[in-house]
Design a protein around this nucleic acid. Structure first.
Lengths: 129, 129
DNA sequence: GCTGTAATCAACGTATTAGTTGATCAAGGA
DNA sequence: TCCTTGATCAACTAATACGTTGATTACAGC
């Protein structure tokens, strides 16, 4: 499977887009199929314009896209961008978990923090894996 | 494996926390081991106070935690919260991908979206597992 | 053409956020 | 004790985000 390149700014927008419960609910709804703005706005108490803005945010983040059907503009999910997000998270989550399972990690948790700092003089900078 | 319950507000904070390149770089750095504020601030051109605020945001989001070591306050990653985020995303990503592979999805792409909307009148709300 | 419906655009108020600088607190070491 | 280091607190500014209401565009059907 070919993973599309996702820029730093793309990740900014994607994570920011999911940092809102309304937009997450929209994503949840769209995972069951495309929907129009009116259908998406129906469960919420906010105005239809506000929902339209939320969809614009999701679209700019690459999480949804819109097609045309007469005056309707059905929205559908872009799973690839969701996958890019989990890909970013998993890279560091897995690294941390593996480190946690190592002996160094055990020492860092059980011994005194001063001792662990002494045993792990790991001060190297962030290097992209 | 037991998954800790994560509230809607927790997800708000976690996704918002990762919507910043500085904070993502901090996460990346911490995936290789705990670090102090000074160590984390060193690669950036912003002030140490600003980095301290970023760490507070990450801590409030449950993505990192701090221990005490004399005057140092080493920060370390909380992989569980990262896992909660991928868990949320994957639930809807997998549903969308499965739907995409089904015949309904094919019809939705080729036929009129109105017809597909009629075949999927599922309008129930997001339900926590 | 006219009307109704779907959706966006525009302008605005308010709240939150990221950054700054200066001051303060806490802990070790000479 | 005094001084240095690590880190946070406080106050402030600029920019951005979310929601509102009112106007406007685009299309379908009569």
């Amino acid at each position: 499977m070919i993973l599309s390149p996702v820029s730093d700014a793309d990740l900014d927008r994607a994570f920011a887009a999911l940092a809102d419960p309304v937009r997450r609910a929209i994503i949840a709804r769209l995972s069951r199929g495309a929907a129009t703005v009116n259908e998406l706005a129906e469960p919420f108490e906010i105005s239809k314009q506000a929902v339209s803005k939320h969809i614009q945010v999701l679209e700019l983040a690459g999480l949804v896209s819109r097609t045309r059907d007469a005056q309707r503009r059905p929205v559908h999910l872009e799973a690839a961008r969701l996958e890019a997000m989990t890909g970013w998270i998993d890279r560091y989550r897995l690294a941390a978990e593996q480190r946690f399972r190592s002996l160094d990690a055990v020492l860092e948790r059980t011994a005194s923090p001063a001792a662990s700092a002494a045993t792990t003089p790991n001060t190297d900078k962030e290097q992209q894996p």
